[in-house]
Write a protein that binds this DNA or RNA. Structure first.
Lengths: 199, 199
DNA sequence: TGTACATCAGTGAACGCGCGTTCACTGATGTAC
DNA sequence: TGTACATCAGTGAACGCGCGTTCACTGATGTAC
């Protein structure tokens, strides 16, 4: 019976994830400090290393949560739509999520991990792709599973590029005001192109 | 007559840019150290601060050089092609440049500058966009200048997203082997979509 | 052309600070009887 | 149920290292006459 210990551990882990989530949300991943997180979570600095392997491990848990929230948002946005509508909704939903979760979303791509991606994280990544594979499969029923996955990755990468460049405000990014319209047009091109190819 | 001083300064600046370029090329921007660069360039640590404002300023000069090399490569790749051929060549040329100049190309996007982008750097950014605007304008003559620029940015961002995700080897990136084929197909969609829109 | 002084590029040791991780310790939880 | 001992989560001060930038100094270049 180690129930009490297990419970305390679980609570501490949650507190730390919550604290890191909030810190990233407010100041962004580059400003995240182990000392701030532990003091927010109400434990000692060393406590972090009993609950997680290290700071990177904690960040990974925050990112998994963010990815999960993104997947939920995208599922909601596409629910009950026809394939084209779903693709449009995915792109706009992605942009909307990125904008309103800016720093957390940035953390998803800023964070480099040297170790292998753990299973519980990979499953969230797979869900993300599945959200795209679904509509694509209905749009192009002739494609094989592996072609679909390839197309979904290309499609995701392209939309991600457009959204991230725009939000970063880089020279090559498009102005925020034009983002929605450009994304809509862009998705339409993809749909038209797919239809043309299917003929 | 400060000719000799001016000359020495110019030489030192070039040596430092060369050294930083090589260091980034070999180890990547995150591993770039002021001490390594100055020792490679054969000057004292403090010398960096007489030739440039600071390390960021030096990095910006390396990036301008990389951007210039990219522009030259893209101009060469598109020279004498019809609009569709040029768009294909741009995407593949971009991927090829990114792959064979991996760390230098990464530095272009990893480097954050707080100060404003100086003119001499902006002009390279503008050239990059012009490489895309050219073919697009011939493909869709009806578009206004500002629409063309918007389309060019969207188009660049999308291709950049596909290429960078793939090279980073992220889960959502497409495998290197499939990159060329996916890019070709992707560009074709854009061209078909543009044609459909022009009707 | 030559001399005396002034300037300023270049030097490199020292500054200054940040921050992830460790580790000897303690007190709460778990186990044995 | 209660006591004695064992374990281990949690503590927080100290470690350890990295590295951009500064600054008093010097020697080469420039200026004045």
């Amino acid at each position: 019976m180690t129930a009490k210990r297990d419970e305390k551990r679980k609570i501490l882990r949650t507190k730390l994830i919550d604290a890191a989530h909030n810190r990233i949300k407010i100041n962004g991943l580059p400003e995240l400090r182990a000392r701030d997180v532990t003091s927010d979570a109400g434990c000692a600095l060393g406590g972090l290393y009993t609950a997680f392997d290290d700071l990177d491990d904690l960040i990974l848990h925050v990112n998994a949560r963010t990815l999960h929230r993104l997947n939920t948002a995208l599922e909601k946005a596409t629910a009950g739509r026809d394939p084209s509508g779903a693709l449009h909704a995915l792109a706009l939903g992605y942009a909307a999520f990125a904008r309103s979760n800016r720093t957390l979303w940035d953390a998803l791509f800023e964070h480099r991990l040297d170790r292998d991606t753990p299973d519980w994280f990979q499953s969230e990544q797979i869900s993300l792709l599945q959200n795209i594979v679904g509509p694509l499969a209905r749009l192009q029923p002739a494609l094989t599973e592996s072609e679909l996955h390839l197309r979904a990755r290309t499609y995701f990468s392209a939309v991600h590029g457009i959204v991230s460049m725009s939000l970063q405000g880089r020279f090559v990014g498009i102005p925020g005001k034009a983002l929605r319209a450009e994304l809509d047009r862009f998705v339409e091109f993809i749909i038209i192109g797919s239809a043309a190819q299917a003929d």
